[in-house]
Nucleic acid binder design. Sequence first.
RNA 1: GGCGGGAUAGCUCAGUAGGUAGAGCAACGGACUGAAAAUCCGUGUGUCCCCAGUUCAAUUCUGGGUCCCGCCA
Length: 322
Amino acid sequence: MTENLHIKKIPVIAIIGPTAVGKTKFSLELARRLNAEVISVDSRQVYRYLDVGTDKVSPDIRREILHHLIDIADPDQVYSAADFASDATDAIGRIRNRKRVPLLIGGTPFYYKALCGTLSEDLPKDAAVREMLKEEIEKKGLAELHNELSSVDPAAAAKIHPNDPVRTMRALEIYRITGRPATWWYENQAKMGSPFDIFYIGLIRERSNLYKNITARVREQFSNGYPEEVEWLLAQGYSPSLPALQGFGYRELVQYVKGSCSYEEALEGDIRSTKAFSRRQMTWFRHYEPAMWYDFDKYEMSEAMEDVLPHCIRHLEQEGKD
RNA sequence: GGCGGGAUAGCUCAGUAGGUAGAGCAACGGACUGAAAAUCCGUGUGUCCCCAGUUCAAUUCUGGGUCCCGCCA
């Protein structure tokens, strides 16, 4: 038992913070200083053709600093947090084989959670079962499905709010595929576990300034081809109901392209949802208790860089020690 | 200038057959086991435009004023 405590964990650096706080710019400079390769922790940048709306770094920069887990799935695929955990683990391994430093950057908190190894191993999923559950909600209503969950998996039903279709369906999905309640799997299935010792650097700035950045960014995206990008995706035949197109901006712009809302409405809607998302990110990131927090309203980015660099190096060097 | 409609939460508006008010959105907080930029939960004191009148009591009724929006000149 105690042997496990001596297994050496792989040191990794991660930059977390809400959208539009300045993670990307900071990460590029840090990557140069550490001779690092970047692993994107972003549930939208994994998709090809979602470029403007997801604020991907340019190909030029990607040639200079290698970026992983960007453009690895088509928009009609469903890329999951578990996929991420496994892909990111592979990528970190390859980076280390090159004697380089893995640097995690991105704003998808659930992906960090997956990488921390707290998800249960090998939980099944099945698109067809999911589709059937969706139809049942249409026909019978969500309340009916939640009742069904109460009878097959009372513990899950107690935790999942009756108004939450996604979690209700997921719990029933596991039950229907395996014949055992999701709760049974959670309790009896091993957790994925994580070989990483992640050093979190948190970036933050005052709410009103963050909101200003968000507004400016979304406006810029809109005038730099965001509507055209969505128009193109729809023209390729990608369905608006795909998970890839459920993000803010994409959702609103689908309406705009179809003519059911105005350009202004789409723009305002995107800004609103992005702000709401930044708040949700913050409630996650508060739990991570980063080793360092940098408030970009009080710190110049360069000051933060000088300050954090020695800590990163110390963290990376601890590998040799026990 | 004439006629009509309006003025209530940050915004759009509902409402009180007279007993000081509530939805959606926003804002803020929270949850989160393979869709997570998803999904869901919680939090509602505001000169009910101003002045006067009627009344035990007016945001609600009456009169006047101010501003806004239509239509007609």
